[in-house]
């Protein structure tokens, strides 16, 4: 049951955060759906591989591709969706636990949690970088542009998108 509920909670938490980030209109449910997709990929993979970083890497790949597709179809910056959809994955809780263990004097535990936190953030950043590169290689953008109802023109200032 939890494998269906957890993505739902992740999506709804993202929906809340997107409101705080001032995302508007149809982008709200789309970002939440991205987060739910990411969580649905991450949790089983992390359990199967025994490594949270593997799950996070795969999830951020999925979120990155989803965001790049939406960005081209709706003519929005991809990072608008990325920033919201990675929220359930980002190691905010890890940052907090690291510092809390340190404040409590548990230095070794703080190191352990801290390294895991940096690993998680690194896995997400790597996943996003890979999905951005892959979507450019597969010219996902030109594919989506052909599907697009309004023909997008090659927007300026996007060459360096990461």
């Amino acid at each position: 049951m939890s494998q269906f509920l957890e993505p739902l909670w992740a999506g709804l938490a993202t929906l809340g955060f997107s409101l705080l980030f001032d995302l508007r209109g149809r982008d709200l449910p789309l970002a939440a759906l991205g987060a739910a997709l990411g969580w649905a990929v991450s949790a089983p993979l992390a359990a199967a591989s025994g490594s949270q970083a593997v799950g996070f890497f795969a999830a951020s790949c999925v979120i990155g591709i989803w965001a790049e597709l939406l960005a081209t179809l709706l003519k929005r910056p991809a990072s608008v969706y990325i920033v919201c959809a990675i929220i359930p994955l980002v190691p905010g809780g890890g940052m907090y636990m690291t510092m809390l263990e340190y404040v409590r004097g548990n230095t070794m535990e703080a190191f352990r949690v801290g390294l895991a936190t940096i690993q998680a953030a690194g896995a997400i950043a790597a996943g996003l970088a890979v999905s951005s590169a892959v979507s450019r290689l597969l010219s996902l953008r030109s594919l989506a542009r052909r599907l697009s109802p309004h023909r997008a023109r090659g927007a300026k200032g996007q060459g360096g998108r990461k």
């Binding site: 705080l20 990675i86 980002v90 190691p91 809780g93 953030a121 690194g122 950043a125 790597a126 990461k162």
Partner: peptide, 23 residues
């Protein structure tokens, strides 16, 4: 506590910091 702390902690900022460095 962790649920509440999530709206305070800079998780997106940590990830963006690493993305900046990677880029």
């Amino acid at each position: 506590v962790i649920g509440v702390i999530m709206i305070l902690v800079p998780g997106v900022a940590v990830t963006n910091a690493i993305r900046d460095i990677v880029a």
